[in-house]
Nucleic acid binder design. Structure first.
Length: 270
DNA sequence: CTCCGATCCTGATGGC
DNA sequence: TGCCATCAGGATCGGA
């Protein structure tokens, strides 16, 4: 579910509710996430104050001063602030209980998410090799062009690689490629510098537009306040196989022989 | 180094 | 209505 805009939506919703609060307890109901929740966390966290909430790609980072919690939502995760007394559902693996009777509750039916702790954020194996943030200045067409030299991988898969650029998932990769007029199967190394400028701008634009409306809710994503996102109403190609291209009317094609579906307009994208 | 496929797990959906 | 196959927003790992 959650790509950069959904994680950013979650982060923005949590900041006013969680920053400055003190952790009272970590309640774990199911340790079996992508990586098992370390048992030490239950003794480590109480008493710590949540100083800041950051985001790196699709990772949410709770800064505890000395150390950080790393939360990843996987495919099906979401976070909500709820009253601690509210009964948890069957797919709510943990609560971070804070002062004020509230807790940060994770829901994750597929258990692809993660809750990890590090005292060395820059060197953590999940964060250390991440590419630049697409909404920061170091991300540009020049950067993408440089990284793509000699690569034959399809541009869609290139954009999904977090080591190239952080936070882009299948929805926004497909949408940005449509916006830039680039075929998702084109080799990354066979795209001109000029087209990479267009693509980088398209990525920034589509991410910002999605953040502005609270992200994309396909099935059950909701922000930290429980409200869905609305970007799905603006999707140009993702999930629209067989429907007319909004630019030229040609039927949108779905390429399913790739591990993840690509959606594109065969007329507008080359 | 690069790339592809398998893998973790559950739920929704569509065809028959 | 029920059953089965297929597909999902992610990211790592092993092997070619």
């Amino acid at each position: 579910m959650p790509e950069l805009p959904e994680v950013e939506t979650t982060r923005r919703g949590l900041v006013p509710l969680l920053c400055g609060t003190r952790i009272i307890a970590l309640v774990v109901r199911d340790r079996r996430l992508r990586w098992p929740i370390a048992p030490q966390l239950e003794t480590l966290l109480p008493g710590r104050t949540i100083a800041r909430i950051d985001r790196r790609g699709k990772y949410l980072l709770l800064d505890l001063g000395e150390g950080s919690l790393i939360i990843h939502l996987g495919m099906s995760g979401s976070l909500q602030m709820v009253a601690t007394r509210k009964p948890p559902g069957p797919w709510d693996p943990f609560d971070i209980v804070v002062t004020g009777g509230q807790c940060l509750r994770m829901r994750d039916p597929r258990r692809f998410g993660a809750l990890l702790y590090t005292e060395d954020r820059p060197h953590h194996p999940l964060l250390r090799h991440l590419g630049p943030e697409p909404l920061e200045p170091e991300f540009s067409g020049a950067y993408l062009y440089h990284r793509a030299r000699g690569r034959r991988i399809a541009i869609r898969d290139f954009l999904l690689n977090g080591q190239i650029v952080a936070g882009i998932g299948n929805i926004y990769a497909n949408e940005a490629l449509f916006s830039a007029g680039i075929h998702p199967g084109r080799a990354a190394g066979r795209i001109s510098r000029t087209r990479y400028d267009t693509l980088a701008a398209a990525i920034v634009a589509v991410l910002n537009r999605a953040i502005a409306v609270g992200g994309t809710t396909l099935k059950d994503f909701s922000g930290s306040d429980g409200r869905p996102g609305y970007f799905q109403q603006q999707l140009q190609v993702y999930g629209r196989a067989g429907d007319p291209c909004l630019g030229c009317g040609t039927q949108i094609v779905r390429l399913s022989h790739l591990t993840r579906s690509s959606y594109y307009c065969p007329h507008c994208q080359r």
